[in-house]
């Protein structure tokens, strides 16, 4: 941290290229999904999506490399560091609100919509739609079992989900140990604790994948299985995507530590990843409680 003035970067090609790749992804994904739904040949749309995504990844790589180089060459002062801190905090807040939308959906469905559909309360008139429907949660039999055949069984929280809880919660501790090691400058310990964190995260993802396979093949718990399956998969699915992203971020800072980046006072890139990882962990605790146990 040396520069006195706030660093204002010169022109950059990355943002507009990133916009173009987002556009390619949207056009590719939109046409791909529409073709799949309409049961017509998908053509090259999948490739367009893939090209857009690869382009975006390489642009982000180049963009972050710029930022890292600027930081390493001492162009950033403390004020810049605070800008990144505010940026990351508010980004995580936006992620919290994204999950809040799905948690809100779960609570509304579970505590209001399904009971009303089953004839409870002031809005019980909707009972007239499907007369034999019984409200229950998890929703094993949906109002229209032809279109949305409910699941035969739901996931038992005390097996895989419990293991996954243990994995993720302990990974929050190991990443903190890595951070502590960074603050005292013991690089071998940073490398070790980060590696363990990545392994715990990956283990979580493997078990999650296994759980999805089991849900689809043995329990009849699918996206089509009525609203229980819908809320289950949207919450755990987006969480899984965030764990994947978090693991990638952890791998990147692990590689950076191996290359000798970061020191005891200047390591916000590292800290941002730990913040994100803790956030992902907290969301999981919410999921374990409200999706699996209760």
């Amino acid at each position: 941290m040396s520069s006195a003035a706030y660093y204002v970067p010169n022109q950059s090609r990355w943002p507009i290229l990133a916009s173009i790749s987002l556009f390619l992804m949207a056009v590719g994904a939109g046409n791909l999904i529409n073709a799949l739904s309409a049961d017509v040949p998908v053509g090259a749309w999948g490739w367009l999506l893939a090209v857009g995504a690869l382009l975006l990844l390489s642009i982000l790589f180049a963009w972050f490399r710029n930022v890292i180089n600027e930081s390493m060459s001492g162009l950033y002062n403390e004020q810049m560091d605070r800008s990144y801190r505010w940026g990351m905090s508010w980004f995580i807040f936006s992620e919290v609100m994204f999950f809040a939308a799905f948690f809100g959906t779960l609570f509304y469905i579970r505590n209001l919509a399904v009971p009303w559909l089953g004839g409870e309360g002031e809005k019980g008139v909707s009972h007239m739609l499907w007369e034999g429907f019984q409200a229950q949660w998890p929703l094993m039999s949906t109002p229209d079992m032809q279109t949305f055949p409910g699941p035969q069984q739901v996931i038992d929280p005390w097996h895989l989900p419990l293991i996954n809880t243990i994995l993720l919660v302990s990974s929050s501790f190991t990443v903190t140990l890595a951070h502590k090691a960074l603050k005292v400058g013991e690089r071998s310990r940073i490398v070790l604790w980060l590696a363990i964190t990545v392994l715990l995260g990956s283990g979580f993802l493997v078990f999650q994948a296994y759980e999805y396979l089991e849900a689809y093949h043995e329990l009849g718990l699918t996206l089509h299985a009525g609203v229980y399956g819908a809320t289950f998969f949207i919450l755990t699915g987006f969480h899984g995507l965030h764990v994947t992203l978090g693991s990638l971020m952890l791998i990147i800072i692990w590689l950076r530590v191996l290359r000798g980046h970061f020191d005891a006072d200047n390591h916000f890139g590292f800290e941002a990843v730990t913040w994100y990882w803790h956030f992902v962990d907290v969301v999981w605790v919410g999921l374990f409680l409200f999706v699996y146990i209760l």
Partner: peptide
């Protein structure tokens, strides 16, 4: 629309009011 969920479809236990 595309993946068969029923968030906004009462036939699967969802709710358009949601």
């Amino acid at each position: 629309i595309h993946f068969g969920t029923s968030f906004f479809n009462a036939a699967g236990g969802g709710d358009p009011v949601l």
